[in-house]
Amino acid sequence: MDVHKPIAINEYLPLPEFEEKGVSVYLKREDLVFPVASGNKWRKLKYNFKALKASSFKGMLTFGGAFSNHLSAAAALAAQEQIPIVGIVRGEELANKPLNPTLLQCQANGMQLIFVTRAEYKLKALGETVSQIVAAKNLFVVPEGGTNKLAVKGCMEILAKNDVRFDVIGCAVGTGGTLAGLAASAAAHQKVVGFQMVDDATIPDRIRTFVTSDNWELIRHLSYAGYSNADKRLVTFANELNKKTGVLLDPIYTAPMLFQLVQMIKDKTWSFGTNILLIHTGGTQGIAGYNYQYQSQWPEP
């Protein structure tokens, strides 16, 4: 795998909600850098694939939900590298249902999909099914969301030298790997703010296993957070932004993050600075699955 260190462009967001309050917001377009596995997905996986190829492992095993961006990216990169890959999917009941667009693409890229109960899924690599498969096939295990030390190393390459001009770096948080990489590579004056999208109390401790500094903070907006929520206001917001700027946001991470920032600035609850760089972490592959699940009208690529 090519382990070059590309630089994503920073795109100014000319939203009146920001400009009227004297807030400058740029979006780092990581989503445009890697067409196969956009944004932080490629960053998280590239050193994992490099480690696998330098080892005696015969393939990869990783985890995700039915609409997982991580599974999709891992499958695409494994196909590109011609590496066997197994995806452990949360929800045994899905095995007898038609595959959604995300899982169909995973399968098309050669990923072996194995559906397990939610109870066993929580055990991850310690589950009986996974343990047996890993041992039998000699597989390199990558955690859910790809977050491990190698993933954080990849995410430390997101920020460029000229990004030092921003006083706030913002990103959406699912497992914490991207935020950890940003916090580890941010300049001394910068605050890294994570918009937490899941109800997972283990995220702060997970981040602390990779980062010793206290230059980061997690925030949540309970009204809009969560993988399983479809909010009409969010759909409207994404469509309006796409028409105004041409920027396509994903429904799980970047759209809720930006929508939340707009709301916090309107409500005067944003206190982290006015010169902001948000990271577009990709994930637009999930739009088809989102529209499939919610019969929604999210703008598509």
Rank of each mutant, 00 (worst) to 15 (best):
M1K: 08
I9Y: 08
Y12W: 11
L15V: 13
F18I: 09
S38D: 03
N40A: 07
S56G: 10
K58L: 12
M60G: 11
F63P: 13
A66C: 14
F67Y: 15
L77V: 15
Q82N: 15
I83K: 00
P84K: 09
I85H: 00
G91S: 09
K97S: 03
Q105C: 04
Q112S: 12
F115W: 09
T117C: 05
R118H: 14
K124W: 06
A125H: 13
S131N: 14
I133D: 10
V134E: 10
F140I: 11
N148T: 11
K149F: 10
D163H: 02
D163R: 05
G176Y: 03
S185H: 02
S185A: 13
H189D: 11
V192K: 00
I203H: 02
W216N: 02
K232R: 09
K232M: 13
R233V: 04
T236H: 10
N242M: 12
K243S: 11
K244L: 11
P251L: 03
Y253E: 01
F259H: 09
L261I: 07
M264Q: 10
T269I: 09
G273R: 01
G273N: 03
I279S: 05
H280W: 03
H280P: 01
G282N: 04
G286N: 01
Q297M: 05
Q297N: 09
E300L: 14
P301G: 10
P301Q: 03
